[in-house]
Simulated assay, not measured.
Amino acid sequence: MALIEKFATLFGVPEFVVPHMSSFVSDRDMDLVVGMDGQLCSVSEIAIRMECTSEQAQDLLEGCYNKHIVNREKRGEELVYFAADFYERLDYVCKFDENYQMKVGPELRQALDHWCYEVYTERMGPYLESLQNGETVDRVPETFELIENLEELLDSVREIRLVPCNCRKLAGQCTKPTGTCLGFDHSITDRTFGQSLTKEEAKEIVKMAHRKGLMHQVNSDWRTNGLAWICNCCACCCYPTRLALEKGTKGVFPVIQYVAQRDEDKCSHCGACTKRCNFSAFSLGETETVIDGKIRRKVEFDPEQCWGCGICVETCSDKAITMVRVG
């Protein structure tokens, strides 16, 4: 079996990516994964298989670990390495390879997004089932948090890391900014690359994201276990939101804390909220009304469609929308 074919099998590379392999991995990366042959390997074992010194094997493994070509774990007192997979490698490449979009082009990018979302959906299946059954899970689901609460949350953390949004990098369904995901404190690992931020810089990122119409998702246990991350999300690209819409898991994944409330007496039916809302809670109805001598289509509001993200509030010049806590 040729090197590329064997690597593709071991690394879980989809068939349509094989002709574009050089855009994602090097020959040395492939040599290493094929040499590991699906096994857990120590540095000394890799040195033998790759016919190099232990120092060279260590450097190779650490470089490939940082690039998400291999993963590692402790076995007794020794670190052992094993191959990652293309799904994990793609996540790294789309976020940190500055030439990613130029390399893949629009057709390949669309195919990668479709494939990646399918893999994500499959892997999330057991997790969603456990959540819906009320079973214990190893990671709490996300929840939307209001912009006015985020400054206090950001003041509570110590370390902040900014990383690109992999969902928008992959999907590219909108022109909203991608430098918007924030990781904090215990969620930051030796593989959380990106830019370190001050609290003030992080607050500006969140404010910018809010102005652009992005919703703010956080770990739903932040009150008890601290803030782990803030993802500033759209509904067209965000994998968790797309999955929740598709599977109808609102309330469980994500957890819902708030619901919009409209004061119809204040509403001028300008329609601004209908453009901002990601979930069609606000929509233009068929009936008309006259406001200040102008005929406008009435804005309909269905609170059952609201997910509680709160990005509609600031867009209402009439101050007709407020958020109220549920439950």
Rank of each mutant, 00 (worst) to 15 (best):
Trp229Ile: 10
Thr178Pro: 03
Val25Cys: 04
His216Asn: 09
Phe24Cys: 05
Ser317Ala: 13
Ile321Tyr: 00
Tyr65His: 11
Pro177Gln: 13
Gly63Asp: 08
Asn166Pro: 02
Phe282Asp: 01
Asn149Phe: 13
Lys212Thr: 09
Asp29Ala: 15
Val313Cys: 03
Leu128Asp: 07
Leu243Ala: 01
Ala111His: 05
Val255Ile: 14
Asn278Met: 08
Lys199Pro: 04
Glu201Gly: 03
Met50Thr: 05
Arg191Cys: 14
Glu300Met: 09
Leu182His: 08
Gly226Phe: 00
Glu88Leu: 03
Ile295Gly: 00
Val104Asp: 05
Glu77Ala: 13
Pro14Met: 12
Leu146Val: 05
Leu153Val: 11
Lys212Gly: 00
Glu98Gln: 12
Tyr65Val: 03
Gln217Cys: 09
Met208Gly: 07
Met124Val: 02
Lys103Ala: 14
His68Ser: 03
Val326Leu: 12
Val104Ala: 03
Glu304Ala: 08
Lys169Glu: 15
Arg296Pro: 06
Val255His: 05
Gly271Gln: 13
Cys231Asp: 06
Cys237Thr: 10
Gly248Ile: 14
Pro254Tyr: 08
Gly310Ala: 02
Glu51Val: 06
Leu153Arg: 14
Leu150Cys: 04
Leu146Ala: 07
Thr322Cys: 08
Gly63Glu: 08
Gln257Asp: 13
Asp318Ala: 12
Thr189Asn: 03
Ala47Ser: 14
His68Ile: 00
Thr274Ala: 06
Leu146Met: 09
His210Ser: 10
Asn149Met: 15
Leu214Pro: 00
Arg325Pro: 00
Lys275Gln: 09
Lys298Phe: 05
Val326Cys: 05
Glu62His: 11
Phe24Gln: 03
Gly251Asp: 08
Leu61Ala: 02
Leu170Ile: 11
Arg262Asn: 07
Thr121Met: 08
Phe16Ala: 05
Lys298Gln: 15
Phe24Ser: 06
Glu51Gln: 14
Leu182Arg: 09
Val80Met: 02
Glu15Met: 02
Gly310Pro: 01
Ala320Val: 02
Tyr127Lys: 06
Arg191Met: 15
Leu32Met: 08
Ala47Phe: 07
Gly194Arg: 03
Gly251Cys: 05
Phe7Asn: 01
His210Arg: 07
Lys298His: 05
Glu300Ala: 12
Thr180Ser: 10
Lys176Arg: 14
Leu40Asn: 09
His210Ala: 12
